[in-house]
Design a protein around this nucleic acid. Structure first.
Lengths: 218, 218
DNA sequence: CTAGAATTCAAACAATCGTTTGAATGAATT
DNA sequence: AATTCATTCAAACGATTGTTTGAATTCTAG
């Protein structure tokens, strides 16, 4: 492994690490981790096979670096948004939800990030769990704490469950940008629409105004 | 491939097909499709390697059969519940949601089904898409139609999006039965709690009573 | 009991896998 | 110009992959 690693990479990279990460990102999204070979990555990156081990140590190390490169920027945006809300003492569910989901549409965020997040969630637990904890653990806890301030009347356990459901809706939207059997439009406008609908759905689910259950079916 | 195939299999199967399906189910859930080898399946099933091809034609055929064996029963329950609601002309969101999610707790449903559904959604699109369409297409369309009758005031496009989010919450719950950093209790009681919370969240998101957005963050 | 179909079996097929090695090349520093 | 370090390269390592083959075995009808 090389001594020092650069902090950021551009989209179409000219250095070897960046080319490998770009190719790995494309193939991991398309075929998943296990079904993607290092040789396919090296070929797509126009790079020697051994370079993958030289720069990233192992296939798992390459996956971790691929994920981290894309998630770090959105974590920064999300934390900056949340810090501002806390500075303003502005704890309302809609603004917290916006602070969490609007960064997905930021121009600073790579267009591949949504599919990459969805892919991590889709990997088997032995792979996804440590990555999710490492990449989203801190930010998730911060947002959950903000939600507790925004909804002081809701039992924290209830709120954690509702937050769990919100994450599920988000991941599914990132994986399937539009409902099945609808046109698969991947434009910015289409992604905007999905995020807007996600925000409305999340707010409704988090606040849960006036619901009661009826009898159960088996 | 053998000429005729039995329609149902018990949990710990004595025939070769059943033993293969049981082992495949366990390993697909644990490691995913690509990372699971036919040799590992054959070993766990105490069956000759060639039996996997003899009975299921290919690895993909085995995956398809593994999925279908578990999803068919819940599709039957969900359709039976929905048929009864339609016979009663009982179109209310809570009862439709219950008809859809309560079967996940039925004793007729194998305990592995939730993780299996989550696993299918987690596979790369080239694998998951055809399976999801084949296994859930018809039932999903039926439930969406029922939702439209339950919420005639909601634009069908809006409703399709909300339904999309509901599916996401469900899949995530099946994949992670409790929120991160909570005790991973997999008892029936714990699964009941998750489903109850999912139902409340889904109803709130589908109906969306009194929500307005505020300014956006980047 | 016997013919024939269904199933199981060990063995091998070519192909691909992640990883390692050691020499060749590049760039940077003394 | 000489030396040192970082990087690239072709080649090979043993192990594992999905699939196929053909004979051995079991089961089932006639």
């Amino acid at each position: 492994m090389p001594s020092a690693e650069r902090a950021s990479y551009v989209k179409t990279s000219s250095n070897t690490q960046g080319k490998i990460l770009d190719a790995a990102e494309t193939l991991f999204i398309e075929k998943g981790f296990a079904a993607t070979s290092l040789r396919a990555i090296a070929n797509l990156a126009s790079v020697n096979l051994a370079a993958t081990h030289y720069h990233f140590g192992s296939k798992e190390g390459l996956l971790s670096a691929t994920i981290h490169r894309r998630i770090e920027p959105i974590n920064a945006l999300r934390l900056a948004n949340l810090n501002q809300l806390e500075a303003e003492q502005n704890f309302a569910v809609p603004v917290i939800i916006a602070a969490m989901f609007d960064p997905l549409l930021s121009e600073e965020i790579d267009p591949n990030l949504p599919l990459l997040i969805a892919r991590v969630h889709g990997e088997p637990a032995s792979i996804s769990r440590p990555l999710l904890e490492k990449e989203f653990g801190e930010v998730g806890a911060r947002y959950l704490a903000a939600m507790e301030k925004a909804l002081p009347g809701v039992d924290p356990v209830d709120l954690r469950w509702r937050f769990h459901m919100v994450i599920g809706s988000m991941v599914h939207l990132l994986n399937f940008p539009s409902p099945l059997q609808m046109e698969t439009d991947d434009s910015l406008q289409a992604r905007r629409e999905g995020i807007e609908r996600l925000k409305l759905f999340a707010i409704a689910g988090l606040t849960q105004t006036g619901i009661e259950m009826k009898e159960e079916k088996q």
